[in-house]
Simulated assay, not measured.
Amino acid sequence: MATVIPYINNSFVYSCTSKEQWGYEQFVPEHTLAFQVSGETHIFHQQGNMVLKKNQVLLAHRNQFAKSLKIPAADKEYKAISIILKTEDLKKYAAIYNIEQNKKYTGRWNVVLKPDGFLKSYFQSLIPYLEQPHKGNVKMAFSKVIEAIELLQNIRPEFREFLFDFTEPYKIDIEEFMLKNFRFNSSVENFAKLTGRSLAGFKRDFIKTFNIPPAKWLKEKRLEEAYYLIHHKSEKQSDFYLNLGFENLSHFYTAFKQKYGVTPTESLIIKK
């Protein structure tokens, strides 16, 4: 897999792979606009699952957990181009054009679009930035961000609420959120952010709720889920370890043996 992130303000991302790959980052910190050039991206996010197919565009909201499985086409590599719509750039745009948006966006956080000719041409225009990043600069990158904002508002005026939602996550119930989202491989800091708390406040409230520190709870919960999948669903660990937040099989085997005293395979033999 090859991923290119130009130095010009880290605004553009190009992904290319010849085999099925999981995306590593499972937290979306900024609004992202992505165009599927070839292959498919299977996305598993907090509000459900979706598939981004060739020639489709995804607009993803910031501050959410999401996993992506990159699947190449039968006769081609997987290719996708993304532009990161950073909050700081959106605020600059809002200041320039006197946009005031104080409401929290309440619509869908992941929207699939069928691009018109303008949007297709826009992504084609990003190719020089991706192939020759050393020739670009911050001002040029910002001009492409502005262009993307204009195009999105032209396609759907209601995207203004989506783009200029600068509110931060509000305080929510920790137990409900963690039980729904423990499978996402992300930092404790990101879990704290999405529950509307500082890191210190999150750790304090977490221990009050679960009587255990968050990092330890996440590890234990994922291992308990793994045990259930192996023994009650007859699933292979190679099929689910990434989906449960483990970085690799070695990491999973080590953690499993530390908790249960045996490897996943040995635990099946013992049960029999």
Rank of each mutant, 00 (worst) to 15 (best):
E147F: 10
A200Q: 06
E225L: 04
E189S: 06
F182C: 05
F166G: 05
F162D: 04
A200I: 07
F162I: 02
N243D: 13
E147R: 11
E176K: 12
L152K: 07
A148Y: 04
F252C: 02
K139E: 15
S143L: 11
E247W: 03
A192F: 11
A226F: 08
I230D: 06
L194G: 02
F159K: 01
H232E: 13
R197I: 03
F206S: 13
A226W: 08
E235Y: 12
N154A: 10
K236H: 06
Y228V: 07
L151T: 09
M178V: 10
K193M: 09
R156S: 11
F210S: 03
P169K: 08
E147D: 14
D239N: 13
E158V: 06
R204W: 09
N181K: 10
H232A: 10
K193G: 00
Y253T: 02
E131M: 14
F256S: 06
D165M: 04
K144A: 09
I149L: 09
F159S: 01
A226D: 10
A200T: 08
G245H: 05
A226N: 12
G201P: 07
I174A: 05
K216F: 04
L218M: 14
F210H: 05
R204Y: 14
G196N: 11
I230T: 07
R183N: 12
R197T: 03
R156F: 07
L244M: 14
E225T: 12
I155D: 08
L199M: 04
Y241L: 02
D173V: 09
Y170M: 07
R204L: 12
E158H: 11
L242H: 15
Q237M: 07
S234C: 01
E189Q: 03
K193A: 05
E150F: 08
M140F: 09
V145D: 02
I212N: 13
F191I: 09
I146E: 15
H134F: 14
S187A: 14
E150N: 09
H134G: 15
K259M: 13
K257F: 04
F182L: 06
